[in-house]
Computed example of a mutant assay.
Amino acid sequence: MFKKDENIILGISIGDMNGVGPEVILKTFEDQRMMEFCTPVVFGNAKLLSFIKKVVNCTTNIHGIDALDQIQKGKFNVLNVWKEGVNLDFGTLDDTVGQYAIKSFIAATDALKNDEIDALVTAPINKYNIQSNDFKFPGHTDYLNQELEGNALMFMVSDAIKVGLVTDHVPLQNVSQHITSDLIKQKVRTINQSLIQDFNVIKPRIALLGLNPHSGDNGIIGMEEQNFIIQTVKELFDENIIVYGPYSADAFFGSEQHKNFDAVVACYHDQGLIPFKTLTFGTGVNYTAGLNKIRTSPDHGTAYDIAGKGTADCTSFKNAVYTALDIYKNKNEYLQSTANPLKVSTI
């Protein structure tokens, strides 16, 4: 196995194999020049991926391996996490296939924790068929938050806009119960630090959206803004975090105010992701900020309706690869630049 400093080792979980995940992975690395940026290793099964390759008419050369110390630079490595065959029915929700998606993801996460890979890109899963007695998480982010160090934050990123969430996979009726001043502070601090160390933004400008329509209209449509959100923004500003708000979400995006900020913080899932995907769908990236390891994913789901047809667009997955590599380099440069070069005396 080659030394890590020669090339970034990029782990990839295979996702739901009845969806477009394997196809966009194969298409991303169909161009051999991608191997100049990183050495990919897909956690799955080489024979199964070779079968999918033929179905979607890809030309990617597959190098099957049985252990991570067999990874070869310049090749599209596929680690055999399992040896048995799996029956696929493209476009179908299948509990068995869902469990193999989680086998891939857990194996890749373990490798990430053990520094056997440098970063992780996850292909799309279906949140329904991954559930089991051993895996009871709404998705990738929640499991990574348990397994890795730090506090995970769903950070949707693109060149045009970056959106972070105070709450992510929470039912709408429960959102107001989850949002507190402490939670908002935690998320804004995480986004501020991520912008600095992961995206090279020296002095980030952050906008916080209000929870209620029109940010509550001075208490007429909800009191959360008046009770604690406005004060929370002031307290964060006193910490030298440049954050403004709360803004009325509809007017904020409608007037393109997001262009004046390095990131936008939304109170709940759809408040942030609807405008993000409207502006960037097919090119955006989901980055799990706030953890000690790097994970990205494309901004789309399993796309069962086009699975197995060879028509899936790999742009978002390719951008997820590029983003993971950029963050890896930025984070290392930041840590080196902020490390104390002087050894502490023990005398």
Rank of each mutant, 00 (worst) to 15 (best):
M1R: 05
K3R: 13
K3G: 11
K3H: 14
I12N: 03
M17Q: 15
N18H: 04
N18R: 01
V20E: 08
T28C: 13
E30L: 00
R33S: 15
R33C: 09
M35E: 02
P40G: 07
V41S: 05
V41F: 02
G44M: 08
G44V: 13
G44Q: 12
L48T: 13
S50N: 15
S50Y: 09
F51Q: 13
I52G: 04
K54N: 15
V56R: 10
T60W: 11
T60A: 06
D69E: 15
I71T: 11
Q72G: 02
Q72V: 05
K73W: 00
V78I: 07
N80R: 03
N80M: 01
K83I: 12
L88F: 01
T96E: 14
T96A: 05
I102Q: 06
T109A: 15
A111G: 12
E116R: 05
D118R: 06
T122W: 09
N133Q: 14
G139H: 04
H140C: 11
L144Q: 03
Q146G: 07
E147R: 14
L148V: 12
L148P: 10
L153T: 14
L153Q: 01
L153D: 00
M154E: 12
M154K: 13
M156A: 14
V157W: 01
K162C: 02
K162V: 01
T167W: 00
D168V: 00
D168C: 06
L172H: 13
D182Y: 07
L183S: 04
K185I: 04
R189P: 00
T190K: 01
N192K: 02
V201L: 01
K203A: 08
K203L: 00
P204F: 04
A207Q: 04
P213I: 08
G222W: 08
G222N: 09
M223C: 12
E224I: 00
E225V: 07
I229C: 09
Q231C: 01
K234R: 08
L236F: 10
I242A: 10
I242C: 05
V243N: 01
V243S: 00
Y247D: 11
A249D: 07
F252A: 10
K259E: 04
N260R: 13
F261D: 00
A263V: 10
A263C: 11
Y268E: 04
Y268D: 10
Q271M: 06
L273D: 09
F276T: 11
T278C: 07
T283M: 05
Y287T: 05
Y287H: 14
N292G: 10
K293A: 02
R295T: 06
D299F: 12
G301D: 12
T302S: 14
D305M: 07
I306N: 08
I306Y: 05
I306A: 01
A307V: 02
T311Q: 13
S316I: 07
F317R: 01
Y322D: 12
Y322N: 13
L325T: 00
L325G: 10
D326Q: 14
I327C: 05
K329M: 07
K331G: 00
K331Q: 15
E333K: 06
Q336N: 13
S337R: 07
P341A: 09
L342F: 15
S345T: 08
